[in-house]
Design a protein around this nucleic acid. Sequence first.
DNA 1: CAATTATGATAGTAACACTATCTTGCAGTA
DNA 2: TACTGCAAGATAGTGTTACTATCATAATTG
Lengths: 225, 225
Amino acid sequence: MATLQLLINENLFLRDPQETELGRKIVQDSIAMIDELGFEKFTFKKLAQRIDSTEASIYRYFENKHKLLVYLIAWYWNWIEYRIDYCTQNIESPERKLEIALKVIAEKKDKDPTFPQIDEEALYRIVIAESDKTYLTKQVDEDNKEGLFRGFKSLCKRVASYILEINPDYVYPHSLVSTAMQAGHQQLFYAQHLPSLSDLNNSEDELYIQNEKFLKELVFHAIKN
Amino acid sequence: MATLQLLINENLFLRDPQETELGRKIVQDSIAMIDELGFEKFTFKKLAQRIDSTEASIYRYFENKHKLLVYLIAWYWNWIEYRIDYCTQNIESPERKLEIALKVIAEKKDKDPTFPQIDEEALYRIVIAESDKTYLTKQVDEDNKEGLFRGFKSLCKRVASYILEINPDYVYPHSLVSTAMQAGHQQLFYAQHLPSLSDLNNSEDELYIQNEKFLKELVFHAIKN
DNA sequence: CAATTATGATAGTAACACTATCTTGCAGTA
DNA sequence: TACTGCAAGATAGTGTTACTATCATAATTG
């Protein structure tokens, strides 16, 4: 298994954390800490203590904790797009490609040995619970201009293109995809914390399969003419 | 036009803000301020200055700013349920009721003279930009136990019941409704800030109509058997 | 009139989100 | 080997946030 590196937008960091020992530790341990504490209670000070470094050193990699979160979420979406790429190799049928994309988005996330330094399970929990906070801010327009959300947007565009291949007359391909991608996370969160907002039963095995089925039905029914 | 008061869960406040002058000012001006500054930059200190009161006084009404936000969002959902109630009076057909519910959820929000002290337009912008933050926290389970999300859940249940009337075999009525309600807000946010994630064009007149159409198609296609 | 209670005034605290500066140590180069 | 550059550590400091506590005062109620 080859060890790869995902290319992340340079505006997301001051110094590339993938290139140094300390940088990798920052990313690795921030994933663990945000997962444990939640984003609001996570601080650079606590992270510094944990990795036996200093606040100042962390600030040399990331401008602030918001950028670090956006970095992690961007990494996630790049990873998902890479996985969709990988899994749709040599497949022609747009229906099949759409199905695979939805599967990759909704499926249970296990450790990907291609990226040994990232704990994808923890990161997935962060994506579910925190990713909306990356853009629900007053600086969203500036952040967007800097290209911080490129990963999500590019993925959305790609899956929307499958939909247009299937039904060129469908009017809302991007809206449908962005809705489905967010719904996938939301339903997992609801199933766990606000179960009356969801019909997925919170049993580990069934959960992800049901979620995938819900999304597939939603999308394929929507684009049927 | 009768002036009504919505009944809000008592766990959301320490002293009922609807019953005093100061309380109403807190609610009114916090809506304006959160709309202007965004929730993270909004503080009780700034609010106190604006309404010529003190931090301490505001803390006598709301435990903290998170609870205040949850209060505002709860008010909003109660208002929406009241409006759906109002607009579905004497209507039998579940299809029609579902349509009306989606319309009320998606339509442009204007000042409702029934609640003269609330700026519904500003509140709607807050709901779009901030409402997810009410439950995307580590204390979601405790907050939920206290019934803080009752409004949203009750509305979801009601609309889901329309769906089950239409098609008793549809397996994901709650998931579909919660997805649609969130999608409605999300698409408006995307249209304005991340337009490549949406197909709604950001022209004031068309926007809400398109959004409503998107949601209706999504929901009605999903439940068709 | 006395008692209660809402509000205001003021002060204080721990944590947070940085910023600045200076030093150390190490890797590469002349 | 000495020189240079730079990453990281050490330390300190600042303004703000999110509270909590206490006391005074004014208005309302019994």
